[in-house]
Amino acid sequence: MGSGSLKISVHFGGGAEILFDNLKQHDLELPLDNGTWNLKRLIAWIRDNKMKSKQELFVKDDSVRPGILVLVNDTDWDLLGQTDYELCDGDQVHFISTLHGG
């Protein structure tokens, strides 16, 4: 894999998991060929690679839909620059829906 890869775990909760085959945890290996990965790129990647339908229930304008909380290593992404946060190896990213019915 060219210049190596980035290993992270993505977790879905609060009903968001039903959009991803009911799996709560996804271990991802992202190629580092085209530069670094920020959360914006990760969200777009999840939308294109992990979702077959109902993308609008997860993504809205390059970010997640309002009402879905994002935590990276137990820290609110608002404190990390939101979509600009650059992912590091071993990061635990949580997407938790607070909306009714997921």
């Binding site: 909760g13 609060g14 009903g15 998991e17 039903i18 109902k54 229930l57 009714h100 019915g101 997921g102």
Partner: peptide, 8 residues
């Protein structure tokens, strides 16, 4: 997660 009438 318990599905409801609003799910999906």
């Amino acid at each position: 997660f318990v599905p409801s009438l609003l799910t999906l």
